[in-house]
C-alpha cells in the first residue's frame, strides 16, 4: 500500500506537513498536582505529576556520586522519579510490557532526562556563581522535593515518544513547578519516493522531486512501522526570534545525511506549532483558574 497518493495525500488524508489533530485536557487525574491527557491522532497518553518531600536516603544518594560542579549545576533541579506504564491494550496486538521491556526502559530514560532538563531552572548567573564556589551551596527553597511522574500509554499509534514528552510538559506546566523551559517534541520521517529506477524517472518527469515532499511530518502508526521515525525534542519557543535548544533526538528511520538535516528542520517547525498549541492550552487553563480563584 502506498504511503502517499499521487495527489500528495497520506493514508489518513493529511498533507506531508500537517500534524495530526491534537487534544490536551488538563487536570484529568484528581489528587495529582498536575495531570494531562494528551491525544494526538489515535495516540493517547496520560501523564501525572506529584510533588513529595525527598526522603533522606535519596537525598544522600543523589549527593555522593556527583562531582562538585555537577552537584552545583544540578542543585536547583529537584529529584525526579519517572515511571512509564505501557498498557497491554495500547497496540493492536495485545502485549504485556513489564518494567524491563526494552521500549519502556528506553522511554523512561528519555523522559527522565527531558524532565530533568525542564526542571533545571538555574539562571546562567547563578550557575556561574556556584561553579566558582561562591554560591550558598545551592540549598534553595524547594530543593528538598521530589517530583514523581507517572506516564501511561493508553493508545499507541505512532509518535509515542513525542506525545509522551508533550504530555509530560503539560503535566509539569499545570503543576506550575519552577521550570527553566518547556520541552516539546515532534516526529518526522522520510519516504522513498521512487522504489525502482522507473518510478523515480516517472516522478522526475512529472516534476515532483520537490524538497519537502519526501518528508512526512508526524507519522502515524502505519507510516512509523514502514519507515521508522525521527523524533526531536526541543525547548519550547512560540515566537520565531527565540532559539530552540535540542534536548534529545532519536532516529529510527533510514535517512541520508542530507535528509537527516532536512528532517530535523522540519521537526523543528513542527515543534514550533506544537509549542504554540501547548502554550495556548496552558495559558487558557491558567487564566481560567486565576479568574475563578481570584478574591
Amino acid at each position: 500500500m502506498a504511503i502517499m497518493s499521487y495527489e500528495g495525500l497520506r493514508q489518513d488524508g493529511r498533507r506531508w506537513n500537517e500534524l495530526r489533530r491534537m487534544q490536551c485536557d488538563l487536570g484529568v487525574v484528581s489528587g495529582a498536582d498536575g495531570s494531562c491527557s494528551f491525544t494526538c491522532g489515535r495516540t493517547k497518553i496520560i501523564a501525572s505529576c506529584f510533588v513529595v518531600p525527598l526522603s533522606k536516603q535519596k537525598a544522600s544518594a543523589a549527593r555522593v556520586p556527583t562531582t562538585a560542579t555537577a552537584a552545583a549545576a544540578a542543585s536547583t533541579a529537584p529529584h525526579v522519579e519517572l515511571r512509564v506504564s505501557w498498557l497491554p491494550f495500547a497496540t493492536q496486538e495485545r502485549r504485556e510490557r513489564g518494567r524491563t521491556d526494552r521500549q519502556v526502559v528506553d522511554l523512561e530514560g528519555m523522559l527522565k532526562q527531558t524532565a530533568c532538563a525542564m526542571l533545571d531552572a538555574s539562571s546562567a548567573v547563578v550557575q556561574k556563581q556556584t561553579a566558582s564556589g561562591r554560591g550558598s551551596s545551592g540549598a534553595a527553597r524547594g530543593n528538598n522535593m521530589e517530583v514523581q511522574i507517572k506516564v501511561a500509554v493508553l493508545q499507541a499509534d505512532g509518535g509515542v515518544r513525542s506525545c509522551c514528552v508533550n504530555a509530560l510538559t503539560c503535566a509539569i506546566g499545570m503543576a506550575n513547578l519552577v521550570c527553566g523551559c518547556l520541552v516539546v517534541s515532534c516526529g518526522c520521517t522520510a519516504q522513498q519516493l521512487g522504489r525502482t529506477l522507473r518510478e523515480t524517472r516517472m516522478l522526475q518527469s512529472r516534476g515532483e522531486e520537490e524538497e519537502g515532499k519526501r518528508l512526512l511530518l508526524d507519522p502515524n502508526g502505519a507510516e512509523t512501522t514502514k519507515l521508522g521515525e525521527l523524533s526531536l525534542s526541543v525547548t519550547s519557543a512560540a515566537d520565531r526570534r527565540q532559539f530552540q535548544d535540542v534536548v534529545s533526538i532519536n532516529c529510527e528511520a533510514k535517512l541520508t545525511p542530507e535528509e537527516f538535516e532536512e528532517a530535523v528542520e522540519t521537526c523543528a517547525e513542527g515543534c514550533r506549532a506544537v509549542s504554540k498549541f501547548l502554550r495556548r492550552k496552558l495559558l487558557d487553563y491558567m487564566t481560567k483558574v486565576a479568574t475563578i480563584s481570584s478574591h
Partner: peptide, 12 residues
C-alpha cells in the same frame, strides 16, 4: 477582573 492571555506569562 478577568485574566486574559496577555496578563499572564508562560514558562520561557
Amino acid at each position: 477582573r478577568v485574566y486574559r492571555h496577555g496578563d499572564l506569562v508562560s514558562v520561557g
